[in-house]
Design a protein around this nucleic acid. Structure first.
Length: 650
RNA sequence: GGCGGCGUAGCUCAGUUGGUCAGAGCAACCGGUUCAUACCCGGUGGGUCGGCGGUUCGAGUCCGCCCGCCGCUACCA
């Protein structure tokens, strides 16, 4: 029987794991554990992308040999994932020889059959994103449409992959297989992208010798890193090495990633490559949303990057929770709040709220109160005749089915909500039945039955939450004195704990985070406990401030407008010729709807002169005019009195 | 500017094909309970379901327009 093959992207090793990569990997791990628990054989792949020129560059900047650098970083990732209880089956590194052989072989085959051909390339390239951009996409700009960094002009002979040949087949496949790209937003986005027309992509790069050399053509540089990287999914199955046996794993059942690399790469280039190779396509591609922090996209440059382990460690310290359970709590938070189509806010306050509310008060307390009563009333032995009420049994089974369905759909927020319904039901049941009152009335038999519901619920919850919180599930099983966490089908067996079964002493798994209280008994504002521990969490800078040094990098000068004319075939643009203190500059400004050429000639305006030049409508714009923005309309700024052209602005 | 999506209680959000759909969780307040990790249970929230029209016996749920936010894209710079 074919293994359930699940993948994460391989991660760039130029920075350590953060909550973004952790999200993808934790989701993948939870999916993998879920499938395993359901009895499937699972093959779970993650790894590192080490062939990127960017990686080479970062290593050089740090003065470390690149191979040594990637070795160290791969180790950082493996350690981080193990610490987060990620149970992958294979960790692939693209610098491995066997992967390089696969890349070479695929390149050769596609070149032989004409899917890869040699041509010349002139175009704009973003080093950071490792991506070429069609001139149609950037002819008004010289910055990367994705990351905003300056693009480099490349003019080189290189190999192309005939992506355009696969346009209609891709579209047909996507239309015929609704589950292929999820969620729906990404599917629509991909279709939109494809419908604009796919162009052949350059799949070789010169300028760096770090990577897989183009086979049999030593002067053609290395294979494009995306072409290289995507093939890791194939390498990991043993394709090329194991004959037909790789089909016990191929194709992937579920490929997870962030939404940014789904439409353009995993949903177009990747399946097109596979079509060219004549291989079956992945069953399902799933792109999740991103975490945002303080309403801002998380990024290293903004300095709002959290390290998962530090977040977990600081919770452990603040709450007195054992680290493995704090890590599981972090996993729970990631999955409970997992961004699906839209982005979601990550915050320590939110994490704490989930910890106290869902884990300490709900899950932890239910287990603890149940075991406490079992020990107090029954000396820790399951009493005779204990049996689950039919009504509760039905509810448990129904909720378990809903959890299954949600997990299968990679909808962990919904699945966990459904699982937690069980906790609410048992708490209400306890309240109605009041086993403590039954005991006082001497009705021990009924009390035992009621508490039995709590035991079964705890056992079931341990099973249902195992994909999310494996260590916690184990601890629940230990306290219930079960030999192991029940597998999925076994977890829903309702009267599975036998009469006479001995239970362990209860011990809180998630000690509650205590809000601060004043000695006078008046509650004071609860302090976000984690936030006080700034040592343990990543530093968060004020994202919307810059330093004076950063400001000084902007060279703003007063320019005098010598000439102005409309830009042909444009409605918004004026071409301005400026005197910037003896030097003449041409800039293109989007003010034609607000000013006529006559109105601006002779005016003095502040201009940012050290902006990266941009090609706009075929005109090189060498700077940016500063103007007030009034409801989208430009209003020119002038010096208080006439000043020499080229005067600096500070 | 174009295409797509979204805008539901203080916060985070559920709401299939139009008719108990006006909801859940959290926060707050009130009450109850005491087995439990000051926990749990119940109650309360005057939400014009972004705004204005329309279709319909009946619309968060369909249509049009407008406002706001997001994504992709574009003659943003």
């Amino acid at each position: 029987m074919k293994r359930y093959y699940i993948t994460t992207p391989i991660y760039y090793v130029n920075s350590a794991p953060h909550i973004g990569t952790a999200l993808t990997t934790i989701v993948a791990d939870a999916c993998a554990r879920f499938q395993k628990q359901r009895g499937r054989e699972v093959y779970f792949l993650t790894g590192t992308d080490e062939n990127a020129p960017k990686v080479h560059r970062v290593a050089q900047e740090r003065g470390v040999p690149t191979q040594q650098f990637v070795d160290e970083m791969a180790e950082v990732f493996e350690r981080a994932w193990r610490a987060l209880h990620i149970e992958y089956d294979i960790f692939i590194r693209t610098t491995e020889e066997r992967h390089k052989r696969v890349v070479s072989e695929v390149f050769r085959r596609l070149r032989e059959q004409g899917d890869i051909y040699k041509g010349s390339y002139q175009g704009w390239y973003c080093i950071s994103c490792e991506t070429f951009f069609a001139s149609s996409k950037i002819d008004e700009s010289k910055t990367c449409p994705d990351c905003g960094k300056p693009l480099e002009w490349r003019d080189e002979l290189c190999y192309y992959f005939r992506l355009s040949d696969y346009e209609s087949r891709l579209r047909e496949h996507i239309l015929a297989n609704p589950q292929f790209i999820q969620p729906e937003v990404r599917r629509n986005e991909t279709l939109g992208f494809i419908n604009e027309g796919l162009q052949d992509i350059a799949v070789s790069r010169t300028g760096s010798d770090w990577g897989v050399p183009v086979p049999d053509d030593p002067n053609s540089g290395v294979v494009y890193v995306w072409f290289d990287a995507l093939l890791n999914y194939l390498t990991a199955t043993g394709w090329l090495e194991r004959g037909e046996a790789y089909l016990d794993t191929w194709p992937p059942d579920l490929q997870l990633m962030g939404k940014d690399i789904l439409p353009r790469f995993h949903a177009t280039i990747w399946p097109a490559m596979l079509m060219a190779l004549g291989l079956p396509l992945p069953e399902r591609l799933y792109g999740h949303g991103w975490w945002i922090v303080n309403k801002q996209k998380m990024s290293k440059s903004l300095g709002n990057v959290y390290a998962p382990l530090e977040v977990a460690q600081s919770l452990a310290d603040a709450a007195g929770c054992e680290l493995p359970y704090a890590v599981d709590a972090f996993r729970y938070y990631m999955l409970r709040e997992m961004p699906t189509d839209a982005d979601a806010e990550f915050s320590l306050e939110g994490f704490e709220a989930r910890y106290n509310g869902d884990l300490a008060n709900d899950l932890g307390n239910l287990l603890h109160r149940t075991l406490s009563m079992m020990h107090r009333y029954f000396e820790g032995r399951v009493p005779d005749g204990a049996r689950l009420d039919a009504e509760l049994a039905d509810l448990f089974a129904q909720q378990a089915a809903r959890v299954t369905e949600a997990f299968e759909a990679v909808d962990f927020p919904r699945g966990l909500r459904e699982a937690w319904q069980i906790i609410g039901a048992v708490n209400r049941y306890y309240d109605e039945q009041a086993p403590w009152t039954l005991m006082k009335q001497g009705n021990t038999e009924r009390a035992g039955q009621v508490l039995y519901a709590g035991l079964i619920a705890a056992r079931l919850l341990g099973g249902l939450s195992e994909p999310v919180m494996p260590q916690v599930a184990r601890e629940i099983a230990r306290q219930l004195n079960l030999s192991s966490v029940p597998c999925w089908s076994d977890a829903v067996v309702m009267n599975a704990i036998p009469t006479g079964h001995i239970l362990q002493e209860p011990k809180p798994i998630f000690p509650r985070l205590q809000p601060q209280r004043s000695t006078g008994g008046t509650p004071v504002q609860a302090q976000p406990t984690l936030e006080r521990d700034t040592q343990a969490t990543a530093t968060i800078t004020m994202p919307d401030t810059i330093t004076i040094d950063e400001f000084k990098r902007l060279q703003i000068r007063i320019a005098t407008v010598k000439a102005a004319e409309p830009v042909p075939k444009s409605t918004k643009l004026l071409k301005l010729t400026l005197d910037v203190g003896g030097e003449e500059r041409t800039i293109v400004a989007g003010i034609a709807e607000d000013y006529t050429p006559e109105q601006v000639v002779g005016k003095q305006i502040p201009v940012l002169v050290n902006l990266q030049p941009a090609l706009i409508r075929g005109i090189v714009s060498e700077g940016m005019m500063l103007a007030a923005d009034v409801d989208g309309k430009a209003v020119l700024l002038h010096p208080d009195r006439e000043v020499p052209s080229g005067s600096g602005v500070r």
